[in-house]
Design a protein around this nucleic acid. Structure first.
Lengths: 258, 258
DNA sequence: CATTGCGGTTCAGCATATGAACCGATGTTT
DNA sequence: AAACATCGGTTCATATGCTGAACCGCAATG
C-alpha cells in the first residue's frame, strides 16, 4: 500500500466507539511502526485532518475534515437537490426519510430527514447500507445493470437479523417486484422493528446513483400505508432524478424494469 | 513536504468555486507532476476521499470525507468542543462563562464554567435566554440575517428587570454596536446586579449557532475590564467557530517538536 | 490533417519512507 | 523502593516507494 494509503487508513481507525486513540495503539492497530505512524499523524495534523488532545496526547479526527466535507456537500448536486424533496416526503408521510448514495459497492447514507413523531426510526448520516438487506439496496439493484447485480451476488449475503434475505433467489424476487412497481419494500431486513420502502434516484445514464427511503416503526405499517409510502417515494425519486439530470432529458428515459 | 502532505494538499485544491478539477489542472495548481498527482489521486480515491466523475473524468471530493466528518461531529459536539475554550476564558477573566446554543427561537444554556471567586454569577444549564434581554441575545442578533432580526421584533419585548431594553430602537442600537465591536455588552437586562459581555459562535454558513458570555457581578465591572472581557470573549468565540467549521488553520495547537 | 490539450502510463534513478533501537517519563507489580 | 512494563516521542542507516520526463491514444480545434 502506498504511503498515502497508509496515512488515510489511520483516519479510518477512528470509530464512534473509539474516537480517540493513543500513538502505540494506532501503531498496533494499523500494523505500522510507531515512528512511521507518528510521522503520518504529524503530516495529517499539519493539514488538520488529525488533531491531538493536548492533555492525554491522544489523537482524534481533525476539524479540516468538517471543512472538506462541507465543501463536498455544498457542491454535490445530489444532496443539494434531493434534500428539499426528501423533506417534503418526510412531512407528507410523517416518517423518517433518508437519502443514500452509491459508493464503492454499497449505499452510503448522505442525508436524513427525521420524522416529527416521538416514535420514529433514527438513521445516521454516514451509515453504510448493504444492498441485499435494505429496501434501499433492493431498489438500487432493481434498476442497476444486470451485470452489476450479478457481481453483487459474488460475495456471500450476510444476515443482519433473523429476517434478512440471504438466498439469492429470494433477493432476486424482491428485486423483480421492485422493478415492476418502481419501489421496494422491506421489513426488518437490517434492523429489527423497522419497515422501509425505497425508490431509486437515477442519474443521467438511466442507472441509479442513489436511493430515497421512508423508514417507519413496523407497528405503524399496514399494506395500504406501505403502498402509499411506496408511491410517494417513487414520485419523489422521479422528481429528484429529473432535477438531477435536467428535465427534458429524463422524460425520454423510461423507468423500465429489467 | 511529505508525500502525505502533498496528497492532502490536493484535497485542498477543491473549493466552493471550483469543486471539480481535471488531472492536468490539478497537476498545475499543485505544482506536482501529472503522474505524481494521479498516483496520489488514485490513492485518495481508494479510500473514497476523492472520487472521479465517470463521464468528464474530473475529480472531486469523495464521500469518505462526509463519513469521517460525521464521525468527528458525533464525538465532538458543539459543547465538548467549546467547553475547554470556555474554561480558559473563565480562568482568564476570573468570571463565570456560559455557552448557549440557538434552539427554537431562543438561546438555550448548554454549558457553564463557574468563576472560582466567592462572589460570582451563577447560571444554570438549561436556562433559556431571551434574545433582546441578554448580552448573548444581542451578540446573536448582531450576526444574524437581517430578516431573522426583523422576525424577532414581531413579538413584544418583555421586560425582566427595570433595566431591560424594551424599545425596538434601543435594542437595535445595541445590536449595531455589538456588530461593529464583535462583542456585546449588557448590564442588568435579565437579572439585577449582573453584567455580561458576549460573542457569537459562527457556523459554517457564517451565521451564529450559539454564543459565549462572560457574566460578572456589576460591582466588579468598569469600562476597561468590560472591554478586556469583550475582546477575550470575541477571540474565544472565533476560536470555537474555527474549530467547529475547520475554517482557517489559525490558532490550533501545532503537533511538532516538544 | 497538423496542432493542441486532455487523461493516463512507463521506468530509471534517487529522494523519502521505514523500523530497530533508543530516550525519559509515568504507572504498576513485586 | 527496586524492578518492570508502557507510554509518547526521537534518531539514523538502509532500501523502498516516490518522482517526473517522455511517452501513448484520443478528442477537440484550426
Amino acid at each position: 500500500m502506498s504511503t498515502v494509503g497508509k496515512a488515510i487508513s489511520l483516519l479510518e481507525l477512528f470509530t464512534l466507539k473509539e474516537p480517540e486513540i493513543g500513538l502505540s495503539d494506532i501503531a498496533r492497530k494499523s500494523g505500522l511502526d510507531k515512528a512511521t505512524a507518528r510521522r503520518l499523524l504529524v503530516a495529517l495534523s499539519e493539514h488538520r485532518l488529525i488533531e491531538q488532545e493536548p492533555l492525554s496526547r491522544r489523537y482524534r479526527l481533525g476539524a479540516g475534515l468538517s471543512r472538506l466535507a462541507r465543501m463536498r456537500d455544498a457542491h454535490l448536486p445530489f444532496v443539494r437537490l434531493a434534500a428539499p424533496i426528501a423533506r417534503e416526503l418526510a412531512q407528507e408521510t410523517g416518517e423518517t426519510v433518508h437519502l443514500s448514495e452509491f459508493s464503492a459497492g454499497a449505499l452510503l447514507t448522505v442525508h436524513v430527514e427525521l420524522s416529527a413523531r416521538a416514535n420514529r426510526v433514527s438513521v445516521d448520516v454516514g451509515q453504510i447500507l448493504p444492498l441485499h438487506g435494505t429496501a434501499s439496496g433492493i431498489a438500487f439493484l432493481a434498476f442497476s445493470r444486470p451485470q452489476s447485480v450479478e457481481a453483487h451476488f459474488g460475495k456471500p449475503l450476510t444476515a443482519f437479523t433473523a429476517h434478512t434475505m440471504t438466498s439469492r433467489e429470494t433477493v432476486m424476487q424482491a428485486v423483480r417486484l421492485a422493478a415492476s412497481r418502481g419501489y421496494s419494500r422491506s421489513a426488518q431486513g437490517y434492523e429489527e422493528g423497522v419497515h422501509s420502502v425505497a425508490a431509486p434516484i437515477l442519474g443521467s445514464d438511466g442507472f441509479p446513483v442513489g436511493t430515497l427511503a421512508v423508514a417507519s416503526p413496523l407497528s405503524r405499517i399496514d399494506d395500504e400505508t406501505a403502498e402509499r409510502q411506496g408511491l410517494a417515494a417513487r414520485e419523489a425519486g422521479r422528481r429528484i432524478s429529473a432535477e438531477l439530470t435536467g428535465e427534458q432529458w429524463h422524460a425520454s428515459v423510461p423507468l423500465q424494469p429489467r
